[in-house]
């Protein structure tokens, strides 16, 4: 449980960080909260020669809600997400999910950027970002670009981010007023990754579902946006048949590994239960 040796860098500006990444292309990792990276280094499963710690870069720490868009800096901690009333107003699923990530000590240090950029399928925020149709802003020496959360994840720990880029912020379209939301996560204990989890965002008008988006955590080697599951709800009264169709559609796209949480078959089953409970909770909350 002792990492190999590495050089530590602590840039003050984004440009400086991007420069360091370019200088050490392929040998440098970006360090944010470190809750995924440091254990990987201690197990020597990650062996970066350079660590670029972004916590002193002030431009990565803001939360802004304006003009129908939420922008969250990559270095914003889970604790800061929970504390933001503006976010809780505009997009309450972020607080709801953050409160289900590990424990307060970890949430004080863990960042939203690290959570979504790391590519660990066990992280909770990627599925939520897919459900919310967020964009990730990436900054490299060639400038800035954005990638949709729904297009970002390629395989476990493999993402659309180039090694020389830093994920600087997340932009989320503010969900419709009165939308219903829920993040349902089953885990063995505090601090564990989900056996399966589901994020649901939906809108209801005159008893009919007018929009629905569903995404799943830790039931494949990437987070899964369950497009068909969401579509199965739209236009329905969210009754048992519709819910059941959405559950079936969600289960159909899962491919979880068998692990200490249970065999693949069980985790697929739980994914469906989480989807069902998330739809029901979101429906109840929808105005």
């Amino acid at each position: 449980m002792i990492p190999g040796s590495f050089d530590y860098h602590r840039p003050r500006t984004l440009n400086e960080a991007v420069g360091l990444l370019a200088d050490h292309a392929g040998d440098a990792f970006v360090l944010a909260g470190g809750h995924s990276l440091i254990p990987m280094m201690k197990l020597r499963m990650a062996t970066p020669e350079h660590l670029i710690d972004i916590q002193d870069i002030g431009e990565l720490t803001g939360i802004d809600v304006s003009n129908g868009t939420i922008e969250i800096g990559a270095a914003v901690t889970q604790a800061a997400l929970i504390a933001s009333d503006a976010l809780a107003d505009a997009c309450p699923i972020l607080r709801e999910t953050s409160l289900q990530i590990a424990d307060p000590q970890i949430r004080n240090v863990g960042t939203i950027g690290g959570n979504v950029a790391n590519g660990d399928p066990g992280n909770d925020m990627p599925a939520v970002m897919q459900a919310l149709d967020a964009d990730y802003m990436l900054h490299g020496s060639g400038g800035q670009r954005s990638v949709k959360a729904r297009d970002f994840y390629e395989a476990a720990y493999f993402t659309a981010r180039d090694e020389s880029e830093i994920l600087t912020s997340i932009r989320i379209p503010v969900p419709a007023q009165g939308h219903g939301h829920s993040y349902q996560k089953q885990k063995r204990k505090i601090g564990d990754y989900a056996t399966a989890a589901a994020a649901v965002i939906l809108s209801v008008s005159d008893g009919k579902c007018t929009g629905a988006s569903i995404a799943l955590t830790n039931v494949a080697d990437t987070p899964l946006w369950a497009e068909a599951a969401g579509n199965a709800l739209i236009g329905t009264d969210l009754g048992p048949n519709a819910v059941s169709a959405a559950v079936d559609a969600a289960r159909a796209i899962t491919d979880p590994a068998s692990d200490g949480r249970g065999p693949s078959e069980y985790r697929t089953h739980v994914a469906g239960i989480m989807v069902k409970r998330a739809i029901e909770a979101a429906h109840e909350r929808a105005a």
Partner: peptide
Amino acid sequence: HDHWRVWKTAQSLGLT
């Protein structure tokens, strides 16, 4: 009696 084993018990009894 972790989650999946208990579920498996319920399943084997036809309760799920």
